[in-house]
Structures are given as structure tokens and as C-alpha cells.
């Protein structure tokens, strides 16, 4: 359905993608934490209705990139465009209104709020509130356990359930792009499998996903396109079938 026309960056150059709409385009951004130069000239493109995955070891800059797209950090150079509109410099709450929503690393559900209240916070922005009941029903279908536990404090949920809540919460505002940051962290393989199936299901309903993942195999399986980061730079880019495992390992470890 969404065939990839574009090969790796080296082959197709920097021209726009053909036949596929670009939803998010990050161009040559540099990001600093104080004096620390965290991202170097990073460019990335996410096509509409794709699952795009960013792979990299600890400290490669994956989460920094996610936080920059979500508006938590601001790039010192370069641009971020979301469906053609420049969004760098927006605050996180403004990025949500544009249609970018995030499942943050470590889940970060609100511990002293109930499951339902957590989900309600996901549709805090005005235009999302009106559709609350409809979207809530869809999320309960996706994760029935959340409906069962809706009146429990979210701190009483298991890790996997909290991850489901964090995903459900991010979907409440009917986003066009969801940033999934390390959603398999600290979960059992069975739960991870379940959660990735849900991500796939979300994607088939037309929601674009940008994933950050440390597990290379899981990423290659889930994504239409992968980027491999190392030391704050993009080292390799391409569709999973095209990349040899040798090249992936080289890029991952920066050899």
C-alpha cells in the first residue's frame, strides 16, 4: 500500500519523495544541551502513514531527536516542518495542537490520577475534548484492560499496563504523528509483542509513527523505514529489506 519509492539518501539525493506525502521533514538540525552538542546536522523524513524507526545505542541522540520534534528542545540550526508548516521553536503544548503526540520514555503516566483521568489529560486540548467519548471507545477497544481499570490510580498498574495507558493517552488527541520513545523498555517479551501488535494496528488506521528502539531486530520488523544513529548523527538510512546486517552493525557501533 505504501511502497517506498525512495532508496537510501545516497541514491535519491535530497529531492522530495515521489508518490508519497512527507508528513514530517527534519532538515540539518543541530541541538545543544547547554554546551554539549547532542545532535549534529540531523535530517530525517517521515512519510504519511509510515512506521519509521530510529535505532541506536544508548546516548546516540535518539531521545534528543524525539524531544526536539515534540518541542521540548529547540534546535539551534536547521528546520523542522510538519505537513509543510515550520514547527521548530514551538512549545510542546503547541506541538500537540499541531497533531504531534508523544509516548515519552519511561511512560510517565500521572501516578496520582486514575486511568480515566490520565486518558482525559490526553484530550486536554479543546478540539480533542469534543470527540472524547468516541476516541475513548476506540482506545478501550484497543486496550480493554484500560476500561476494566479505568477508576484505578495509574500507579497501581503493572509496567505493561502503564505503557498501554501511555499509548492510549497519546492517542486521545487524534494525532497525525505519534512519537514512541523506547516503548519496550523494562517489559517482558510477551508484553512487548502485544504492544507492538497494537502499534501496528494503530498504524493501519492511518496514524504515522516514529519509533525509537534499541532492539534492532524488532525495529527492522516493525518499520517501513529505519534510521540508524550514532554519536548524535544519522549514520545509515533505508528500508529494512535493503540494509545488510553488516552495514547496520557498522553504523550502530560507529565502526
Amino acid at each position: 500500500m505504501y511502497g517506498i519509492e525512495r532508496g537510501s539518501r545516497g541514491l535519491s539525493g535530497n529531492g522530495g519523495s515521489i508518490g508519497v506525502n512527507s508528513l514530517l521533514r527534519v532538515q540539518n538540525i543541530d541541538v545543544f544541551y547547554g554546551d554539549f552538542h547532542a545532535l549534529w546536522d540531523v535530517s530525517l523524513e517521515v512519510e504519511e502513514a509510515f512506521v519509521v524507526s530510529i535505532i541506536g545505542a544508548n546516548g546516540a541522540g535518539k531521545s534528543t531527536l524525539m524531544n526536539t520534534i515534540a518541542g521540548v528542545l529547540s534546535p539551534s540550526k536547521g528546520t523542522i516542518e510538519f505537513h509543510g508548516k515550520r514547527i521548530n521553536g514551538l512549545m510542546p503544548y503547541q506541538a500537540v495542537a499541531e497533531g504531534i503526540s508523544m509516548v515519552p520514555e519511561g511512560r510517565r503516566v500521572f501516578p496520582r490520577l486514575t486511568v480515566l483521568e490520565n486518558l482525559e489529560m490526553g484530550c486536554y486540548i479543546h478540539k480533542a475534548r469534543q470527540k472524547k467519548d468516541k476516541v475513548l471507545r476506540k482506545i478501550y477497544e484497543l486496550f480493554p484492560i484500560l476500561e476494566e481499570r479505568r477508576n484505578q490510580l495509574s500507579s497501581t498498574l503493572s509496567g505493561g499496563e502503564q505503557q498501554m495507558l501511555a499509548i492510549g493517552r497519546a492517542l486521545m488527541c487524534e494525532p497525525r504523528l505519534v512519537l514512541f520513545d523506547e516503548i519496550s523498555l523494562g517489559l517482558s517479551p510477551l508484553v512487548i509483542k502485544n504492544i507492538y501488535q497494537r502499534v501496528k494496528q494503530i498504524n493501519t488506521e492511518g496514524i504515522t509513527a516514529l519509533l525509537v528502539e534499541q532492539d534492532i531486530q524488532r525495529s527492522l520488523k516493525a518499520a517501513h523505514k529505519v534510521y540508524i544513529m550514532q554519536s548524535g548523527r544519522i549514520r545509515l538510512e533505508g528500508r529494512p529489506g535493503e540494509l545488510s546486517s553488516e552495514n547496520i552493525h557498522k553504523a550502530y557501533f560507529g565502526l
Binding site: 515519552p104 490526553g122 486536554y124
Partner: peptide
């Protein structure tokens, strides 16, 4: 109310509240 819950959410985790579209 939404605002009451948003105040509690911001007091739980300010960063996560911002990611929900709340201007903390």
C-alpha cells in the same frame, strides 16, 4: 473539571503534562 485535573497532572509530572498539550 479538566482544569482541576490538569492542575493535578502538572503537579505530578510537569514535563509529561506539557506533552499532553497543557500549558503548565
Amino acid at each position: 473539571t479538566y482544569m482541576g485535573k490538569a492542575i493535578r497532572a502538572a503537579s505530578d509530572d510537569e514535563g509529561a503534562a506539557q506533552l499532553m498539550g497543557i500549558n503548565t
